[in-house]
Write a protein that binds this DNA or RNA. Structure first.
Ligand code: MN
Ligand code: MN
Ligand code: ZN
Ligand code: ZN
Lengths: 146, 146
DNA sequence: CAAGTTATTGAAAGTCGTTTTCAAAAGGCC
DNA sequence: GGCCTTTTGAAAACGACTTTCAATAACTTG
């Protein structure tokens, strides 16, 4: 599936007339190898580890391309850093976040999604997106607190 | 009710050993007179209109006090500015936001809230807060687009 | 109510994540 | 290989916000 995502990006790049560069390849490889919700800085450090010359600005720029290409989703948590995660076509999830250890759990809830659509409809809105984040303490942090 | 909120703040101030200043009074008056989701800058401009000497830093500081006092809620929209709105004790609402004209509609949905608690429970989390924002086009912007 | 103590203030500097600038380097095309 | 254009990295700029600090204002006490 990594190969498939690379194809997706290459197709996007071709469509947009973007050039294929070593930097973009490396950043894509590193991004695809992760499975977390990484900040740009975190990604940058990983990228630098495998290709020291690459600049931060390029990482910032390239992650935005991934979003445009539909490979990545941008998310903002209250820590003030933009984070990126994998985006699979047609899939969506929301987040349950531990305020103790910053663990992130992903969930999908079709009932809530339906209720959200209902609310939008009731107000005559055409819904295009939504954000939902639940905050609390995970079982581990809860135990530690008690 | 404005008077009541002033009392709430004064009680909080007394409890914390805070001094009562002209600046805090003015900022509280201006805040209570609004009914929008205002950024600090917007609040600052209104405050300056009624008391030119007041500094931005004081507005930043004072709004945080209002949050601590339970009078205000802080909210972050994707525009990168922190906004403040009135917080009524024991009340909660979420937001439906028009990406065309930035209109904000408030809603409450007890069904969703219950489902959120269920999700947290299912993962063994003790839920302390949540954010939910729905994005789309309001009826007016929708008509303008068509 | 004057003097002393401490909190608060405003201006300016600092911070931090992100964006922009710009000259050098690299990619694509003939 | 040339030529034109995009991309890059470093550094500067940006913007929201926070901190610093000396002056000022609010309490307290005598
Ligand atoms: Mn996720
Ligand atoms: Mn609101
Ligand atoms: Zn935890
Ligand atoms: Zn609108």
């Amino acid at each position: 599936m990594i190969l498939e995502k690379k194809k997706t990006f290459n197709a996007f790049a071709a469509r947009q007339g973007l050039r294929s560069t070593r930097q973009r390849d490396v950043i894509l490889d590193v991004f695809l190898a992760t499975h977390e919700h990484l900040s740009v800085e975190e990604l940058y450090l990983k990228v630098k580890a495998s290709q020291p010359g690459i600049g931060q600005a390029t990482v910032y720029r390239t992650l935005k391309l991934f979003v445009e290409a539909g490979l990545a989703r941008e998310m903002m948590l209250p820590d003030g850093q933009t984070r990126y995660e994998h985006q699979l076509v047609g899939e969506h999830h929301d987040h349950l976040i531990c305020t103790g250890c910053n663990a992130i759990i992903e969930f999908e809830d079709e009932q809530i999604e339906q209720l959200q659509r209902d609310i939008a409809k009731r107000h005559g809105f055409s819904l295009t997106a939504h954000k939902m984040q639940l905050y609390g303490l995970c079982p581990t942090c809860l135990r530690a607190t008690a």
